[in-house]
Amino acid sequence: MVEVQALSKSYVGRTVLDGVSLSAPQGAIFGVIGPRGAGKTTLLKILATLVAPTAGDAFVAGASVVSEPLRVRRQVGYLPNDFGVYPDQTCAEYVEFFAACYGVPARERAALAADLLQLVDLYHRKDTPADRLTPAMRYRLGIARVLAHDPRVLLLDELTAGLDPRARVEARELLKELSSMGKTILLTAPNLAEVQDLCTHAAILHAGQITQAGPFDEVLATTPPYRTIAVKFLGDVRLAMNLIKAANGVVDVQPFNEPASPSDALAGVTLLKELRVTFDGAYADASVLLRSLMHSGVQVVSFAEEN
């Protein structure tokens, strides 16, 4: 369904993708895994025909992203990791608008929007202004939007970034449902653990090159086991992030915030910051990282490896 052949993308003085090749069969949930700056977003933008490759080609349902971008767009639904909505539109109008942009006839749009909002469990919010949704609801609205023209391939950048744990679970269930409907899904994630139990296939992208690709279990078995360390602390997030990024064994670091409960808010817990560190170093490296945080004035409340 999606064939990427020796795809390269270079900007002035910088190579983002270097001869990337991969193949995603129909119905697969294909995870493109890599740290920030690995080239995941660029790869998805090329597949969505937003960015032109410097060399190579990619085919979506047989259509070339280089020579047949319009055919590709009919087959692809693209959801960027951070997308906006129009403040003057309700959820139903938002979906109907994009259905119109994809040429869905006017008489079909209202019913289609209702169906899609039901699918993503937002029908009860159909008349709510789209900009008043929570991040989790907005993500689901985005999914409804990308389905408006019934594409065969979904391109989802940073699947669940910014979502709370419950919303992540819901998003996973939704994607499994879409996969069971025959959609091929390409999604990006910072580590394998993020998409375990979801992806059927995966490719590890590192510094613009694919280091591993294939069925998920095979990739998992041959890839260094990344671990996730949750660091909770009080203080400056930027300082903590810079220290963590500079440490040995750190693959990626992302901010993570769960909504505080009313009792937590009373206790001042809202000031607590949390970072999720993707880590492939030794325990000694983790120990050095913790010491460097504490010596630099970051008030570490907890430093724990997640299962």
Partner: peptide, 13 residues
Amino acid sequence: ENKTFDVLRVTLL
């Protein structure tokens, strides 16, 4: 600015 341009550009318009 509203991050709606990319999703508009990937439509058939």
